[in-house]
Amino acid sequence: MTVPVREKDDYRPSARRIARERLRRSRTRRSVVIAAVSTVVTAVVLYLVITRSPGWPRTRETFFDWHYAKVALPQVLKGLWLNVRLLVCCGALVLVLGLLLALARTLRGPVFFPLRLLATAYVDFFRGLPLIICLLGTVFGVPALRLQGVPNDPVVLGGVALVLTYSAYVAEVFRAGIETVHPSQRAAARSLGLTGAQAMRYVILPQAVRRVVPPLLNDLVSLQKDTGLVSIAGAVDAVYAAQIITAQSFNYTPYVVAGLVFVALTIPMTRLTDWVSARMNRRQSQGGTV
């Protein structure tokens, strides 16, 4: 450990330091130039290869038609709003339910055996069940029951199917995180007099959650894409909006538009988590050049 000593000496950089820094700067400049040149060359080569290939004109007409892109974009964006709402609601529910399932599986003591068993069975079942089957079952199967008080809205039912499947995935992510926290942390917490639940809440979970943020984000991005599957039940989301236009025109540009819109939605989320984890690392770990 180092006791901070403020710079109060009359320090002047030596000639050696100045030369060294000049060398570093010139190296940085060279790297920038090399990167720029290599990027331009790559871009030109890619452009030439793609535009000169035999099928390009037809590919461009079918998938990259500017006219249809302009027609599709407002419809797709209107549909996307549904996807975003689904993502937010389902995402929140998935995180809560997933965490509860993970905690249920870590409970100790014979009393909790049935709870552990149920949680394990739930995770095993819904993690293995193809999402599309789960979705078809809820969206078309549940209304066929004609039960009173059960919604028939395909969006709600589709959301339920997504939550059922994704909470199983997320539960496993949380559980993996909890198990990577070293037992000594639990021992330290318990020896301070914290109860098992308090140790989990204040010591284990905060560390576990930080560790699993990247895989969690992975699942959320995946969930975001799969919100498009509610279109099979006839809910007009971004995918269905594109499908309607394609069905009328036999041009596939609207699908490309819808796809790009989804991609554009995930990128900021990825950058955000990168930034969050980088900040966490900076705070918690020692510096150094390796």
Binding site: T2, V3, P4, V5, R6, E7, D9, Y11, G287
Partner: peptide, 11 residues
Amino acid sequence: RKTYGGALVLR
């Protein structure tokens, strides 16, 4: 000479 942030560690 080595500093960490503003702290002078080796002078």
